[in-house]
Amino acid sequence: MGRALSDDVLGAIVATARVIGALVLLFFLPGFLLINALYPRKGELDREYDALYRVTLGIVLSIAVTVFWSFFLNSLGINEATGLGYVVGPNIAGGLIGLSAAFFVLGWWRGAYPWMARVHPALARVPKPGPGELLTEDERDHRVRLKLQKLAEKREALRRAIKDAERRMRLQSADAQSHYETLRDKSRAELRSVEAELKKLEEERAAELY
Rank of each mutant, 00 (worst) to 15 (best):
G21C: 05
D46N: 15
R41N: 13
V67R: 09
L25T: 08
G43T: 08
F72R: 11
I35T: 05
E44N: 05
T56H: 09
Y86T: 06
D46P: 02
Y39P: 00
A81D: 13
Y86V: 05
D46E: 07
S62Y: 02
L34W: 05
I35M: 09
V65D: 00
A64Q: 11
G58E: 00
D46H: 15
G83L: 07
D7P: 03
V67D: 02
F28R: 02
A22Q: 12
L45Q: 04
P30K: 03
N74A: 14
V67M: 12
I78C: 04
A12H: 09
N91A: 12
A37S: 11
G21R: 08
D50N: 08
E44R: 05
G95T: 04
A93R: 08
F72Q: 09
F71K: 12
A22V: 11
L45G: 02
T16I: 12
L10F: 14
G94M: 08
D50M: 04
A22F: 14
S6I: 14
L45E: 03
L73W: 01
D50S: 07
N36P: 03
F27R: 01
L84W: 10
A17M: 13
G95N: 04
G77L: 08
L45P: 00
L73F: 06
Y49N: 14
G43M: 03
I63N: 04
I13R: 11
A64D: 08
F32V: 01
R54P: 00
N91V: 03
A93H: 04
Y49R: 15
